[in-house]
Structures are given as C-alpha cells and as structure tokens.
Simulated assay, not measured.
Amino acid sequence: MTEQIISPGFLKSMSGKTAFLKRMFTVFIAQEPKRVAEIRNALESSDVERLRHLAHALKGGAATMGVERVRDCCLMLEKASKAEDMISAKAHLDELEKEMRNAYAFMFNFLAER
C-alpha cells in the first residue's frame, strides 16, 4: 500500500518551483526534529500548555508543507493536551514521530534526486 507522505495537491502546486521546494524541505528537516524533541520533553514533564503550543506550531508547519498525516497527528496531540490526557498524548506522539520519520525520508529522497 502506497500512502502519500506529502499531499499530491501541495506537490502539484510546487510544480516548477523545485529550488524553492528544496529550500522548504531543507528548513523543515533542519528545524523540526528539535521541535519534536521539545514536544517529547513537554509530554514527559507533563507541561500540557507547552505541549499544546508546540503541537500547534508544528501543525501549522506541517500544513504549510503538505505533510497532512503529521498535521493530523499534531491536531490530535493538541486536543489531548487541552484535555490533559497524557495517555492519549503519548500515543499521538508515538504516531507523530513515525510520521515525521516518513516525512524526513521523503524529503531527503527528494533532495537527493534533484
């Protein structure tokens, strides 16, 4: 089963803008692992307000990049933090980390091919 890592609509909108897309992917790869680590730290310290803030920020970045499954994980993580449901937040973080690895792999491959 092949699932889209990056929204086909986003990729289509970037058609002919390879240099710009490469810069976007490079920035995402450089910045977001730190944010995911901060999300994990906020969860582990039960800092629900920081967790909500970080998940919200990553959600916006993921939406801009067309990484819809990451965006969806962030939305669920944000909702869990608002409800102070750390058990659900942990499950959503695990899924987020998996989806981020998929996104990084897609972006690295895109950068290597062009």
Rank of each mutant, 00 (worst) to 15 (best):
T2S: 11
T2F: 12
E3I: 10
E3W: 08
Q4T: 13
S7K: 04
S7M: 03
S7F: 02
S7P: 10
P8L: 14
F10S: 07
F10I: 11
L11F: 07
L11W: 00
S13N: 12
S13K: 06
M14T: 01
S15Y: 01
S15V: 12
S15A: 15
S15I: 05
G16R: 00
G16L: 02
A19D: 10
L21S: 00
K22G: 01
K22Y: 04
K22M: 15
R23Y: 05
R23P: 03
M24C: 00
M24E: 05
M24A: 02
M24N: 00
F25S: 01
T26C: 07
V27K: 04
F28T: 05
I29V: 15
I29P: 10
I29A: 12
I29L: 15
A30Y: 07
Q31R: 15
Q31C: 12
Q31N: 10
E32S: 12
R35H: 03
V36K: 03
V36W: 01
E38T: 13
E38H: 06
R40S: 14
R40N: 13
R40A: 11
N41E: 12
A42C: 12
A42V: 07
A42W: 01
L43G: 00
L43R: 06
L43C: 11
L43K: 06
E44V: 08
S46M: 11
S46N: 14
D47K: 08
V48A: 03
E49R: 13
R50P: 04
L51I: 03
R52M: 13
R52S: 08
H53P: 14
L54N: 08
L54G: 00
A55D: 01
A55S: 15
H56P: 12
H56M: 11
A57N: 11
A57D: 14
L58H: 10
K59A: 03
G60P: 02
G60Y: 02
G61R: 00
G61F: 10
T64C: 14
G66C: 15
G66V: 14
G66R: 07
E68G: 09
V70C: 08
D72K: 14
C73P: 04
C74I: 09
L77Q: 08
E78K: 05
E78T: 09
K82A: 08
K82D: 11
K82S: 07
K82G: 03
A83Y: 05
D85Y: 02
D85F: 03
M86N: 09
M86E: 05
S88W: 06
A89H: 01
K90N: 02
K90G: 05
K90A: 04
A91W: 00
A91D: 06
H92V: 05
H92A: 07
H92W: 11
L93R: 06
D94C: 02
E95V: 05
E97H: 04
K98T: 08
K98D: 08
E99Q: 15
E99G: 08
R101G: 06
A103D: 11
A103R: 04
A105F: 10
A105R: 13
F106L: 09
M107L: 13
M107F: 03
N109S: 13
F110E: 11
F110K: 03
L111N: 00
R114D: 07
